[in-house]
Structures are given as C-alpha cells and as structure tokens.
C-alpha cells in the first residue's frame, strides 16, 4: 500500500491556475495562497510570524499614517503595474507629509478566475518596489469575490511613517510670494494608461512615471529650503492639486505656461485627444510650494536627484480672494486653470 505523505499539499499551479472561491474561505487553500505567493514575495520577520497583527517597536515623536486604494485598469501598463503603483502611491502620500516611510500593509480583493500568473507578477512587482524603497510589507489580507464582482484585483495599501521634528507641511501653508515647483514632466502616467487602453489603437512610447518619492523628499528637506507644501499631483493632475492648495491656503496662483515641463510624446498625445496635460495624472512627481527666497535652492536640490532632473519653477502664489489658479499662456493671454470637471480619464490609479 502506498504511503501517505504527511502534510503534503500539491504546490500552487502558478502557470495555469487561477483564483477560486476557496482561496478566500479561510481554509487550506487560502493558507497555501498566502504562504506560497504573498509571504514568499514579501518575506520579512514581521510577516513571517504569521500572527493576526504585526508587532512594531514604538517610535518617539510623531507618526504619519496614510491609506490608498488602487483600482487601475489596465492592470499592466508601460512603466509599471497595479502592484508597484500601490506601493508607490502610499509611500508618496506619507512622503508628502515630510515623513520617512517605515511600514506598509496590503489588502487584496481578488476576483474569482483571476490567473495566478498575473497575481504573482503583481505581487512580485509590489515586493520589488517595497524592497527598493526599503519599506517592508508587515501585514496584509486577502478576500475573494465572485466572478463579475471585481475587476481582477483591487489593492489597498496603508503606510506608516516617522515625521522628524521641525517638519510641518500642510496644504494650508502656501503664502503670497511663495514659488511653485514641480519635480519633473507632467502627465506621463495618465497618458501611458490612456495609450494602453483597448479602445485607443495607437502605439506609443509613453511610459508611466510611477516611482517612490521619499528619497527625493528627503533631499529636498535636507537642502534647508523653507518648504511650505508638498503634494503628489495624482488624479486630476497638477491643476487639481494646485486648486486644492489655493483653496486650503486661501490664496491665488499664477502659472507660466512656457515653464511647464512636458514630454513631447505626452504633449502630442494630449493634443490628439483634446486633453490638457495639467489635468493628467502623475505617479512619480511632486508639487512643492516654497518660500520665494528659497526657490532656487529647492530647485537645485530637486534637480540633483535622479527623479528630479526636469524639475522647474512653474509659478508663484499671490493674494486673491477668489482663490483662482491662473496661467499666463505662451500666447500672451491669461486664463483660469480651473478644477477638473467630471473625469478626464477612466480609472487610472
């Protein structure tokens, strides 16, 4: 009689298998999915303990906590995928507060029928992004919804960071006389997604700019420049971000159109589709509002970093009871850069 192998479970068929309802049921199948796919990719001591929660050392001082849901379609796009995007997105939100990100958690909602091969690609990309950022994924959760009730995979990540003494960044700190900086070209992520979408047949070399910005932020803060506001202009683009800040700080802004850094490919694609790069999403760029006298120092710090090579001063803050964001056009006229109306692009982050 054949001997039964104790505790043997056939390994997950990553090549051909796919998610079924049992992977969310709390039973063996779920334990196997977590062990073979998630725990292996994210391997770290906190996660390795297999407890209900991660036990973290308490830090003295202030903490920053931020959470972000990711529902991008398509899941894979030039320059990245939903995996690395979900890590970068949350790290950047923590970094925009001036904090050093320490830990991440990740929640997955998987759709029945989603191929393991795609899931592995996404999880590996997440793990790589977290490793490169030096921030471990210390806790997580997985749920499975029936076919037709999700869109492959949705990922929610939460980030915890440490805020050093003396750093006080907030959207309400922009003051008349401040300068407005961006860390690089506008609209790359949104246009990369747009170019990939099935209904658009054009092939385009536009690459998403998805990247973790906490290194760049650290350099910027280390420069000693008096930074008032940092924000990452994701959905709604730079225009929407600046309108939010203008509202919060009760100020007006004037941009200089010729100063906006925009890749030619992005400008051309926007032209073709009737979009405005100021409203297109970025996933690896920041907007900095800096005291007027420190603008050049902040610009130099940004440009010295690999992610800030095309940083630019794009405008200034002034008094305005209407809190308008305006722009002097390259043509010589003046116009409002208003809040985004409706949606320029469907599900992009």
């Amino acid at each position: 009689m054949k001997e039964v192998k104790r505790g043997y479970v056939r390994p997950l068929d990553v090549k051909r298998g796919c998610v079924d309802m049992s992977h969310g049921s709390g039973g063996r199948a779920m334990a196997q999915l977590i062990a073979e796919l998630f725990a292996e990719a994210f391997a770290n001591d906190y996660l390795g303990r297999g407890d209900d929660g991660a036990v973290l050392p308490a830090a003295a001082g202030r903490l920053v906590l931020s959470t972000d849901c990711h529902v991008v379609s398509p899941l894979f796009f030039p320059g990245g995928d939903i995996g690395c995007l979900s890590v970068h997105g949350t790290l950047n939100d923590v970094a925009m507060m001036g904090a050093t990100p320490l830990y991440l958690t990740a929640g997955f909602i998987l759709e029945e029928g989603f191929p393991f091969a795609d899931l592995k690609r996404i999880v590996d990309s997440m793990a790589k992004a977290a490793r490169e950022a030096g921030v471990p994924v210390v806790a997580g959760d997985t749920k499975v919804v029936e076919r037709g009730h999700g869109d492959g995979v949705f990922i929610t990540t939460t980030g915890l960071g440490f805020l050093p003494e003396g750093v006080n960044l907030s959207g309400n700190r922009a003051r008349p006389g401040d300068r407005i900086l961006v860390s690089g070209t506008l609209g790359d992520h949104g246009m990369a997604i747009m170019a990939k979408r099935e209904s658009l047949g054009f092939s385009s070399p536009i690459i998403s700019d998805t990247a973790a910005l906490h290194g760049l932020v650290a350099e910027l803060l280390a420069s000693g420049a008096d930074i008032h506001v940092l924000r990452d202009p994701t959905r709604g683009g730079v225009a929407t971000t600046l309108n939010e800040i203008a509202q919060q700080s009760a100020v007006g802004m004037m941009l200089q159109e010729p100063a906006l850094p925009i890749n030619t490919e992005v400008a051309a694609a926007c032209e073709l589709l009737g979009l405005d790069p100021l409203y297109v999403a970025n996933e690896g760029k920041l907007v900095a509002i800096v005291a007027g006298g420190d603008a050049e120092r902040a610009l130099a710090a940004l440009r010295a970093h690999p992610l800030g090579g095309r940083a630019a001063i794009i405008g200034a803050v002034h008094e305005d009871t209407h809190h308008f964001v305006q722009m002097t056009t390259g043509f010589g006229g003046r116009r409002i850069v208003d809040w985004l109306t409706g949606e320029q692009l469907p599900r992009i982050c």
């Binding site: 056009t329 390259g330 043509f331 010589g332 006229g333 003046r334 116009r335």
Partner: peptide, 9 residues
Amino acid sequence: ISRYGVADL
C-alpha cells in the same frame, strides 16, 4: 480664444 487668452490681446 478662451484657452490662449486671444481676447486679452
């Protein structure tokens, strides 16, 4: 006309 501020000129 609106986007480029032609009327301003």
